[in-house]
Design a protein around this nucleic acid. Sequence first.
DNA 1: TCCATTCTGTTTGGATCCAATAGAGAAAGA
DNA 2: TCTTTCTCTATTGGATCCAAACAGAATGGA
Lengths: 228, 228
Amino acid sequence: MISADNSSIVAALRKRIIDGHYAPGERLAEIPVAEALGVSRTPVRLAFRTLEQEGLLQRVGKRALAVRVFSPADVQCAIEVRGVLEGLAARLLAERGLDPKTREVLLDCLHEGEAIVGAAQLTEESIGAWSEVNTRFHAAIVDADDRRVIADAIARNNHLPFASADSIIIDRAELDQAHQRLRIAQLHHRLVFDALEKGEAARVEMLMREHAQIGLRYDNLLIPERHE
Amino acid sequence: MISADNSSIVAALRKRIIDGHYAPGERLAEIPVAEALGVSRTPVRLAFRTLEQEGLLQRVGKRALAVRVFSPADVQCAIEVRGVLEGLAARLLAERGLDPKTREVLLDCLHEGEAIVGAAQLTEESIGAWSEVNTRFHAAIVDADDRRVIADAIARNNHLPFASADSIIIDRAELDQAHQRLRIAQLHHRLVFDALEKGEAARVEMLMREHAQIGLRYDNLLIPERHE
DNA sequence: TCCATTCTGTTTGGATCCAATAGAGAAAGA
DNA sequence: TCTTTCTCTATTGGATCCAAACAGAATGGA
């Protein structure tokens, strides 16, 4: 039984899809889902509509809905999309000029991140804290009235299976690997901030584009062997 | 009265919003809309949900829905978003290599476009024809299984008010201005194809990014004065 | 034996009814 | 006169009922 308000039904279904309770490709019918959630068909239909629009559900044939199957190419694409969109947002911010308020937020993030990453040891909690700082950093760059369309596009793209980069980092990485990753990410934050402040639009776009993908390309984050 | 199938209700509402029948900022209630369309509230609710997700409607306060107001910054952003996404799609295509089928389609578009743009005079019909060719060119670059996520992101972004670049060109431009624009666009198509064939990924991304915006930045398309 | 047609059951889509609630407006108090 | 609170109404959200469409099975004919 779910708190019978539609947005929580959407959230519940989204969660079930993302964590595999409903398998990719599995067909979803209204009645069983409604019964499982303890509500009537109407709100489930609404929720299906939302999730279809988000791209988590997919029409099969003319009427049936199924959980969308994401190929590796899909995930790769979604990572790239996130990269170009965040890069774009950063560039527009650089072109328009860094306002004092955003600058303040970014600086706070930098300092807090420095403290976390600079610690000798990473803990579960400090990873959580960094993830929060990271989210704030990205939000500061993306969320503004004059870039709302980009923020929307990113949000929609993020409904894709990797859902939240943060959870991947926390779930998948061993602690020492995570530490190395966070150091890289923190460095990126510094570089991005630096370029933003100097108004180096093209450079900040490139940096942000690269950085936006770091939490997601988790396969590539291991430090490669020294080759000399 | 509308053919009582939900997707046509969505389409009808979308049309009314885009062509201003419902003004930006205007609040939409279910009952009057349902009566206007001659259907009950249920399908209207579904349609509202879709349009809200698309970004054409926007929640005001806690329950009310209103037609979204697009600022100039929004439109600018949407153009930029389209640019980076199409650029990304083109780059991925270049990296993966141009398959024979896509190559064929693009070549056809180039030749047909050449014929239209090369004509002495442009007509309403030839603009329409070029618009169709242009659409096919872009689709060939964007629509493929391995870039579906990008295509989706572009499609969602295009629900924004400018809706279709083609209609803007046709509606707003004088014929001779249009001719000049189409020549530029055709040149872009050639450059993009060339870069694609050579596998020049970074270059094709840049070219496509620029080109994707040409139909949209209609203010910038006038040929500047010669400066020497 | 295989194909086509029909029949039936399952599922989606639409209409209507009922309940909850947000928001406006009125009334009362400061 | 301004602010706060209360009430009432308009509107949204959920449940249920009904109709239509689709899929699959079964039966009949070739």
